[in-house]
Amino acid sequence: MDTVEKKFRGRHLLKISDLTADEIMGLLNTAYKFKDVSEREIKKVPTLRGKTIVSLFYEASTRTRTSFEIAGKRLSADVINISTSSSSVTKGETFKDTVLNIAAMKPDAIVVRHPSPGAPAYAARIAGCSVINGGDGANAHPTQALLDLMTIHEKKGGVEDLKVAIVGDILHSRVARSNINALKMFGAEVTVCAPPTLLPHGVGALGVKVTHNIHEAVADKDVVMMLRIQTERMQQGLFPSLREYSEHFCLSAKVLKSARPDVLIMHPGPINRGVEIASDVADGPYSLILSQVTHGVAMRMAVLYLLCGGAES
């Protein structure tokens, strides 16, 4: 394992394939230990004392930004949040200049969320410190996939051969892409389900099964991940109305009946109650939605530890 971690120093986390399966297993092991830390009275370890982490978010966020901030602080790093709405971005400063100026203040890591795919990768080329992708357009959201993996792993003891359905707006979902990559890496069988207009062309090439019927998607699944309809990324009508979408693709208690009795219901948040998921299901006994949020802090602690814990080689 020693060489694996050394290799990662000075590296970035832009997408799941930046990590090997061994590294992801190591991150899981570490995240479980950090979850224990979060359950203590003193929720802090001195591991990243003297390190600085900046989060630079060009899109709204509750969970990702807060959990990166809490994660950094529980590791004793100093964390600074920049939201573009209150920064010089509103005065016309470009993404490049913003990144270069933050980098000039010598942070150890920058967490970037941006509506354009590839923006964090670009930041990684110019920043001279570790860059973590906090979500870029419809491209990737690696830390979400890692925390989802942890949530499944904790409940099921592993991921191999599990049947996982991802239901909803696959077309606009970076969470779906990163999760498909991570789940396939560990041998899960993934089915995606959406109306044809909300599936990317050639989605089958990702090695997933495709269906347009939620009953078929949910049947006999170990895990069902629901996704939000991302109206903010939609330029034209991809479906007649939210109400009609919900008629056919909402995860209701009735739809859930065809799933396995030990099914896990997940959702990356924010949820739209009554649109893609019924309230009683979101709050029900199979739901792990808040567990995912708890694991978000632990997994982001593990990621920050891996990226910032050690000098650049």
Partner: peptide, 22 residues
Amino acid sequence: LDITFYRDDIQSKGPDLNAGRT
């Protein structure tokens, strides 16, 4: 007791993903 996150040589040795459970 696991001391991985309390070590004083993290900077030179780098992160260790094999921490045990306290």
